[in-house]
Write a protein that binds this DNA or RNA. Structure first.
Lengths: 111, 111
DNA sequence: AAATGCCATAACCATAGGGTTATGAATGAT
DNA sequence: ATCATTCATAACCCTATGGTTATGGCATTT
C-alpha cells in the first residue's frame, strides 16, 4: 500500500478540490453548468486564455470527474458531469456537520 | 478596477478552495473540527510533517478564514472557524443547484 | 486535392507551492 | 541567569502548475 490516509475516495476529493482551486477552471465549469455542453472553441472564446490552456484545464476537470467528453467530428464537447460534485459535497456534509455541531452554541455570535 | 470576474467574494472562495486543495491541510483542518482547538505542537505531532510546515499550513488556513488563532504564552492555538466554510458552501449551493436542476431528468442514469 | 478549422500535445518560461533544516524571538521552567 | 520549549520566519530545493507559442493530426469545406 501507499499512503494509509489516501484511499480512492480521498484521492478523488483531492483531485476535485485541486481542480476547483483555480479561478479559470471554475469559470469554465460554471459556464458549462449554466449554458450546458460547449465545444473547446466556444469555451476558448469566453475564457480569456489560449485554446491549448482550455484543453489542459478541461483535461484536469475530466480527471477530476467533473466533466464528460463527447467528440463529434473535429469538435470536442465538454459538459458538466451529473453527480460530479458528489465527493466534495459529501466531504462538506461530513465536516460541515461536525463543524456546525461543534459551533451550534455559538450560532449568531460570530459574523 | 482589477479583474471584473474576481470580486471580494470570489477572492475568498479562491483562497478557500486553494486552502482545501492540499491533503495535509485538510487533515489538519479535519483534526481541528473533530478535536477542537489545538496547539501547533499538538498539530505537528499528528500531521506527519515538520513544525514549520504546520505553521505555514495554518497561516494559509487563516488567510482563507477557515481557522481562528489564539496566542497563550508561548503556545499558539488554532481552531476551526465557525461559519468558515460558508463561502464554499454557498458556491456549492449555487452551482450544485443549477447542476442538479440541469440533470434532474437524468437522475439515476449515470453511476 | 487543397485549404481551412478544431483540437491536443510538446516545448518552453516563470512563479507558486510543499517540503526540509537552520535560526531567532519569546515565554516558561530551573 | 540559564536552560528548555514553542513557534514563526528565512533560505533553500525540487516539483507542480498556469501561461504562452509552435506544431501536427484529423475533419470539414471548397
Amino acid at each position: 500500500m501507499t499512503k494509509i490516509l489516501q484511499d480512492d475516495r480521498s484521492a478523488t476529493i483531492d483531485a476535485q478540490f485541486k481542480a476547483l482551486s483555480d479561478g479559470t477552471r471554475r469559470a469554465l465549469l460554471e459556464h458549462l453548468v449554466r449554458e450546458g455542453e460547449q465545444s473547446v472553441h466556444a469555451l476558448t472564446a469566453i475564457s480569456g486564455v489560449s485554446q491549448p490552456m482550455v484543453s489542459r484545464h478541461m483535461a484536469k476537470l475530466k480527471r477530476a470527474e467533473l466533466v464528460t467528453v463527447r467528440r463529434a467530428g473535429r469538435e470536442t464537447f465538454y459538459a458538466a458531469r451529473a453527480k460530479g460534485l458528489a465527493p466534495v459535497v459529501q466531504w462538506m456534509a461530513v465536516y460541515g456537520a461536525l463543524w456546525s455541531q461543534r459551533f451550534t452554541a455559538l450560532e449568531g455570535i460570530e459574523a
